[in-house]
Design a protein around this nucleic acid. Structure first.
Lengths: 340, 340
DNA sequence: CCTTTCTAGGTAAGCGCTTTCCCGATTTAC
DNA sequence: GTAAATCGGGAAAGCGCTTACCTAGAAAGG
């Protein structure tokens, strides 16, 4: 690999001059030298060693992101927004997949710190797990103490800035729609029990129930993994436990699609016999049949917002900034009036 | 940020010793010292500076990947496979989105080179553009000359190892299915004209046509962008130009889904009036209605394979290794016998 | 014409780590 | 008992770059 020194030698100048020319330093350099150096750079196909640069200047420029899984549409959307803003600001993004493994998340924070990232963005739901939260906060605080910025997307209980979707409101809207359509007995396919996303969305659903003098009994809640397969399983369990359910509310679209598949396989018409609603409004939601009534979250915007927060250095004041983003009901075909 | 020297000072040993303990060097270290050092590491929450490590050892460990867009399901799948193998081997992956912009691809190769990645993986179709190919090959060759490994996924014309899906065969299988169902006049929604993926898949379709003594006239080919929206537009154009089409073959699933949406909006029954087939077999393909007949490509495996190739240092012999992966027809509901 | 002030460019000191080489202290062997 | 081998640990030389700081020559001022 050609080095700065090689370029300097070939151009017959000092390394400092080459560095200045390459980095467009404020120090003026004679045109003749500049051309010689640029020619040498071209000839040697020289590219500065990013690690050496990072060591030499204290400037940290890349951004680390920890998501559950980039290939999951939910995170893919968030990531898209992240990437856009990061690229606009000339930042490189390192993406780490934790596959919902808390230990791996902790490791990744360490790894990103080792890589001297300018900011760490934790995307995805948090866990209701005090031991984990404490450990994570400890690591984040150490990182912040050395000037690192942290932003969490959709979590509570973590130090630093946050972008949080209004999951509770989304849950409430979902319930309101179902009640408005006359549904009184509906099943809920929830996500993993200890995730905050699950509990928040459920809380919204419960608030709606209370307003109608109803409750969400445990037998009408089945816990899945936020993926299609578990949506099928959960829908089956719900229906088996209570065949007279008039609707199923899934706490994300993947599981709603699983429920749709299960209903189709049992020959149950949607929405004529059973209504189904989802959550997130992933792009597919309007391509499944029937198209999915769901709650839209501005995922890409949330990603973009997180980077923006990360890049604005907290101006002196240390109060963590929290950006709340809304949730909106999208009416499509999968939910209709209660029939039976 | 605590440094190695800080740890050494706190533990009362030399930096060398700390380094040896942290890296599990082969050199033995007394148990007492080890414990003191580990305690100091814990106390200072020390994490070695990855850039300094990379500078000091010549070992390069991370892998760079250039894709069109990670949030596109096609690349998300490939990336998933990539990540799995990379993580298994303790490699970090840097993902760069080129958004199908050739210049950006070139820049990213430079950037990855600057970051001293162990390998560069170029995922996604190539372009039929000699100037670009030449430039890219130049850069890749320079990188290889300094020990960098390169793997391309689904491209031709690039130096280095390659994992190529059999797009031509896939196209052929798609055509064969349509002909077997009695379709003689079908439209094709192709991807961008200058992408090799497009031309390869079209070539397969053409081969099938020839075997039936037919041809693919230009008016039955509409070019899209491999996304849903362009699939709708293209389907509309095709149908407007020739209302008697009995089938539409889209060269990827997103566009097929767009075609499905367009047909639904026009009240044309699929597959009763018009059949639709896709390509790639993305997860959604079995959730749309009707479920999509398509060609399955083992995307995650391709990603995994690329990393595997990248990690096996070419054993002396410089012949680029090419791994062909198959394509397979998946019959679902969207294609039926020709009716009109 | 000599001193002073700019300049453009070079010199060298790190950035934080790894690793070779070396040294003093034990062991082991003769 | 001495020479040789062994072993744990430290000193120091980089890795490739940036950036004060410095210097020689030119421009400016008197």
């Amino acid at each position: 690999m050609a080095t700065l020194a090689d370029v300097a030698r070939l151009a017959g100048v000092s390394p400092a001059t080459v560095s200045r020319i390459i980095n467009g330093s404020s120090k003026p350099v004679a045109e003749a030298l500049r051309e010689r150096v640029l020619a040498a750079v071209e000839e040697l196909q020289y590219v500065p060693n990013a690690h050496a640069q990072l060591l030499a200047r204290s400037h940290r420029s890349t951004i680390g992101v920890i998501v559950h899984d980039v290939s999951d549409p939910y995170f893919a959307e968030i990531t898209r927004g992240l990437q856009r803003v990061a690229t606009e600001n000339g930042r490189l993004v390192i993406i780490c997949n934790s596959y919902r493994n808390p230990d791996r998340e902790l490791e990744y924070v360490e790894l990103l710190r080792a890589h001297q990232v300018a900011a760490i963005i934790l995307a995805g739901s948090g866990y209701h797990d005090d031991a984990f939260t404490a450990k994570m906060n400890g690591k984040l605080r150490v990182y912040q103490a050395t000037g690192g910025r942290t932003v969490v997307i959709g979590r509570h209980d973590h130090v630093g800035d946050a972008v949080v979707p209004d999951n509770e409101k989304g849950g409430y809207l979902l319930g309101a729609e179902l009640y408005a359509l006359g549904h009184r007995r509906f099943g809920v396919i929830a996500g993993p029990e200890q995730m905050t996303t699950t509990t928040d969305r459920l809380a919204g659903l419960r608030r709606g129930a209370r307003e109608h003098g109803l409750r969400l009994p445990a037998r009408r809640i089945a816990y899945g993994d936020f993926d299609r397969a578990s949506g099928m399983t959960a829908a089956a369990a719900l229906l088996d436990a209570e065949p007279k359910l008039t609707a199923i509310a899934a706490l994300n679209d993947s599981m709603a699609i699983g429920a749709l598949a299960l209903l189709r396989s049992r020959g149950i018409a949607v929405p004529d016999e059973v209504s189904v609603v989802g959550f997130d409004d992933m792009p597919i939601a309007s391509d499944v049949t029937p198209t999915l009534t769901t709650i839209r979250l501005p995922l890409a915007d949330m990603g973009a917002c997180a980077v923006t927060l990360a890049l604005q250095s907290a101006e002196g004041d240390d109060a963590p900034r929290i950006v709340q983003v809304g949730a909106e009901l999208i009416r499509r075909e999968s939910a209709g009036p209660a029939r039976r």
